[in-house]
C-alpha cells in the first residue's frame, strides 16, 4: 500500500442507518436503485444502537484476485483498487468464497462477480452520505474496523457482566 493511496474510512458513530450509500452504490454499479445489489452494506448493530457501512478493504493479499482462474481481477494502478474486468469474468464464484471479508458478491443480474472499485477514485457512497460517516482519505484501512470491533466486543463483555 503506497502512502498516497486513499481508503474508505467508516465512522460508525456518525451513521444513522439511512442507507443512502447503498442506494448510490447500487445505482452507480448496476443502474438500479436496489440496495440488495449494493457493494457497500449497512449493518445494524442493535445492541450497540449503531450502524456500520461495510465494504471491500482493498487488502494487500487480495484473496479474490489470487483465486481467480482467469485473472479477471486486476489492481488499478492509481487507486490500488482491486477491480473485476467484467468481460473476462466467467462467473465461477470462486472469488466470493475466497474473500475472507465477505465483500465480494455474485450479481444475479450480470452473472459476474462484483466488488467495490472505489468508483475510479471518487466513491459515490462518500458523496451520498449526509453525515460524513464514510470518508475517502489517506489512512490505514485497519483503523476503523479494529476500533469498532473492540467496541462491539467490549459492549458484550459489559452486558454479560450486567447479567451476573
Amino acid at each position: 500500500m503506497t502512502s498516497a493511496t486513499r481508503t474508505l474510512q467508516i465512522h460508525p458513530d456518525r451513521c444513522t442507518g439511512c442507507k443512502q450509500c447503498e442506494l448510490a452504490c447500487s445505482w452507480v454499479q448496476t443502474g438500479t436503485f436496489q440496495p440488495s445489489r449494493s457493494l457497500i452494506r449497512v449493518h445494524v448493530f442493535d445492541e450497540e444502537a449503531s450502524f456500520a457501512p461495510y465494504t471491500c478493504f482493498q487488502c494487500d493479499e487480495a484473496w479474490c484476485m489470487q483465486a481467480c482462474p482467469v485473472n479477471a481481477i486486476d489492481v488499478e494502478p492509481d487507486t490500488q483498487a482491486k477491480v473485476v474486468i467484467d468481460d473476462v469474468c466467467v462467473g465461477c464464484g470462486l472469488c466470493v468464497i475466497a474473500c475472507p471479508f465477505g465483500t465480494m458478491f455474485f450479481d444475479r443480474g450480470s452473472h459476474t462477480a462484483e466488488k467495490c472499485d472505489l468508483c475510479a477514485d471518487d466513491p459515490a457512497c462518500v458523496h451520498a452520505c449526509p453525515t460524513a460517516a464514510i470518508e475517502y482519505v489517506e489512512a490505514d484501512p485497519v483503523g476503523w474496523i479494529s476500533a469498532f470491533g473492540e467496541k462491539v466486543d467490549a459492549g458484550r463483555r459489559d452486558s454479560l457482566k450486567g447479567e451476573l
Partner: peptide
C-alpha cells in the same frame, strides 16, 4: 478481530501480493 488479523497477513509473508492481475 478477524478483519484486523487478515488485513495484516499475506501468503508470502511480508510481501504485498503483486501476483495475479490480468
Amino acid at each position: 478481530g478477524a478483519p484486523k488479523a487478515l488485513l495484516s497477513s499475506n501468503l508470502l509473508t511480508g510481501r504485498a501480493s503483486t501476483g495475479g492481475g490480468y
